[in-house]
Design a protein around this nucleic acid. Structure first.
Lengths: 213, 213
DNA sequence: AACAACTTGTTGCCTGTGCAACATTGGGAG
DNA sequence: CTCCCAATGTTGCACAGGCAACAAGTTGTT
């Protein structure tokens, strides 16, 4: 558990102590369960320990959109919890059976009466996690801002290529999810992927992709 | 200066002390100056004291897009600074002559040797500011996700209406900026605004708007 | 008043893409 | 193997909205 960013640079003994002190709890979620529901307030945030999740939003007409994907080690609802009583603009849904460490936000923010040193470190780590979340939103915006379907796809593929540090990479999501993430039609996505292959921009088979230039 | 969120719940005397301790500096910027440049790293963040600014981004083809608007009291580059050495995905530009309090990020994160109580409070306030920044990005995404020009406009107008707590309100930005923010053509914005007026959805003259239903 | 500079509105054209409907492929269960 | 269902690809059509060019309105300056 000490490979978690939240506990970076904190000794194992201290982590054990902290977990009790901040009253962290393991909670299990089944696939499709909501870890956080939209339009509710909460005073807890979570760290995904096992499984996978995504934050989603529905617009007035009922169309669902994926905002971010969460992998183990990732934070859930940190921005929301830090808003102190605000209601969630989105929901977080488990996409497979998952285990989440739920932590009362205030326990981290306020420290304990013992005022131990590691508590301060914990808060610093939390700041980093929140900032990281903000950065994810920036990458989301980068894709959405692109004017054409092709540019959206390229922006996303470049992001994945960067993450996997290679021009050949495996797409971590299927076409449905990808279309939803890019906020485009799935059929338009398929159509444009073919065109890009025909134009020699990319090569792909199933989820194995290569950026040609 | 103690009306600033960063110094909320800290006494005036302590603020004076803190400002020296964290080595905060006032920096002046002229209209159109860059407070933060894109693709650079920084270890400082800023609080806008006077003036106005916006964060902007250019895509590969050179098109500029506004990400967020910053008002006095607002934070500049907090996410970036919290990323610890990452390069900025965007630039922040003063839109009028501005005064910014620049603060070395680490000074807040690490506290001082005296380890005074108010330092901890400062860090807590910073967390709130960062979270707020994240929320702004969410609202940005809300607008961008809407499928049609009309829906984008409505989403934005609703946001402003909510902020000003009235169905009649004054648009704080001009059409150029609004179009850029919504990532649409200015002419399409004008066209759709007329249509919406014709359809009885809204009423407006210059920047005075009313949401009819 | 006269002029410049900027903001806002209008309109015609044409392309990109949403939408719907269908075809093809692949993988798992029996 | 065969069947089924989900994922992926293909295609025709219609129209929203990008683009460009121009008109009208507004503000500030001399």
């Amino acid at each position: 558990m000490n490979e978690l960013k939240l506990f970076a640079n904190i000794s194992y003994d201290e982590i054990e102590m902290l977990i009790k002190c901040i009253n962290a709890k393991r909670v299990n979620f089944k696939k499709d369960d909501f870890i956080i529901e939209a339009d509710t307030a909460t005073d807890e945030f979570g760290i995904l320990l096992e499984g996978s999740a995504r934050s989603v939003k529905w617009d007035v007409s009922g169309k669902q959109t994926i905002i971010t994907m969460v992998e183990p080690g990732g934070a859930i609802g940190v921005l929301l919890a830090a808003m102190c009583g605000g209601v969630s603009p989105l929901a977080v849904q488990a996409t497979s059976d998952s285990v989440v460490m739920m932590i009362p936000y205030k326990r981290i923010l306020e420290g304990c009466e013992k005022n131990c040193r590691c508590h301060e470190k914990l808060l610093q780590n939390l700041v980093g996690i929140i900032a990281e979340k903000g950065l994810e939103l920036h990458e989301r915006i980068n894709c959405l801002l692109e004017p054409s379907v092709r540019d959206k796809i390229l922006t996303y593929l470049l992001k994945i290529s960067r993450e996997q540090k290679s021009r050949t990479f495996i797409l971590p999501i299927n076409r449905n999810i990808m279309a939803e993430y890019l906020n485009i039609e799935r059929s338009s996505l398929s159509r444009e992927l073919s065109r890009m292959k025909k134009d020699g921009l990319i090569e792909y088979k199933n989820n194995n992709f290569e950026l040609k230039r």
